[in-house]
Design a protein around this nucleic acid. Structure first.
Lengths: 204, 204
DNA sequence: TTGACAGCATACTGTACAGTATGTTAGACT
DNA sequence: AGTCTAACATACTGTACAGTATGCTGTCAA
């Protein structure tokens, strides 16, 4: 009844995700995953019908965590300020705080990983990714629309494009940070995004 | 003597790159590449010692094209304006023009693709990628340093971080654009980056 | 004209892989 | 005590894959 703390299914998924972020999906064999967690084929195919099934489970779990992160950040930001612009700035600031704590395990996004092996996955997987990106666009977009109702942007501003840019910066900086082996880049680039929003809507 | 227009080696590399951007490196078999170009194993292993050798050749060619693009854009920008800020803005604008012409074949970057299968490649490959990113940082960074000598930024500005942001935006928007199946996003996001630079250094 | 080599094709090998078939065991329920 | 099932382990299968061994053919130089 009580969900086992060392649930084998979760163990497999955790190991799989870590390996996939380093080797890609095709480059990660089921055997390699199982060796990591000390289980065998029997365990794997008891919990997953196929390797594709694992991919599906992984991306859904990742998307759920992603949504939880977004909604969590939004709630915290809404508590910390009443002004929509400040809320967005705070949200990005909170992400910067999280990025500051990044050190050893280099960041990686399963969405991006799967996107660079597009043809390996079915439409269901791609829909999950698409919806995850769309959710950030929607939730941040509506905040920015509120901002635009009150303030005048210094340059023509499309709220959806501005919202997208956070996703863009995060996905992009993961690549750069991995390649340059510099985790600090993540916070630095998020800071640039925050600067942009400040300059665009600031009154200075 | 005259380099054959349908050089088999080049044909293989072209097909390989296209397939790798869709399936990843591990997900792309040598047989699949050869089927595309109508050649056989004999041809492949005549031109490449191994699959890793192909990876090395691909990333070097990609990096050379990347460098050529950067230097070409810089020269054009330098001809179009004397002002360093304008040069950078023009460079980004030229990239936007290129992005506008993107329609069918979704964009993809071999650097990012390889970064998401990191463990599959040796240090030499990673060094090539690292240096490619470093070059953009260096070349754009020195331009932005010139800008900072003349103008005062509205917010604390690190030229290297600003330079990196172009790479970040490009890499990031490739992921988003692929996933959302919207090639227009590329130009839109580049525009945001240009806006940021304008706001940061603008006199308005 | 001959031979040497680039540029392939064909046919093969060993292995790593996804997936299957069939146990085994420990607990829950009756 | 007996039955049932979840949760695995073990041992296997077929195949797709990277890589090899060898043979063919046109070209070009001597």
């Amino acid at each position: 009844m009580a969900t086992n703390t060392t649930d084998s299914r979760t163990l497999i998924m955790d190991a799989a995700q870590e390996l996939i972020l380093q080797h890609g999906f095709a480059g990660t064999s089921i055997d390699a995953i199982l060796e990591r967690v000390g289980l065998t084929k029997g365990a794997f195919f008891h919990h997953f019908r196929s390797k594709s099934d694992l991919a599906h489970a992984l991306i859904e779990r990742f998307a759920e965590a992603d949504e939880a992160l977004l909604e969590g950040l939004l709630k915290r930001a809404e508590r910390l300020s009443r002004d929509p612009l400040q809320q967005v700035l705070i949200l990005v600031g909170l992400l910067e705080e999280m990025a500051d704590e990044l050190t050893e395990p280099y960041p990686g996004c399963l969405f991006a990983s799967f996107c660079y092996e597009t043809q390996l996955f079915d439409d269901e997987v791609h829909e999950v990714i698409r919806e995850a990106f769309a959710l950030w666009r929607k939730r941040l977009g509506e905040k920015l629309r509120q901002v635009l109702e009150v303030r005048t942007a210094r340059l023509p501003a499309d709220p959806d494009a501005l919202a997208d840019m956070l996703t863009v910066v995060v996905e992009g900086v993961y690549v750069l940070s991995k390649s340059m082996k510099d985790p600090k880049l993540v916070a630095t680039q998020l800071r640039q995004y925050r600067n942009y929003l400040e300059l665009l809507f600031g009154e200075g």
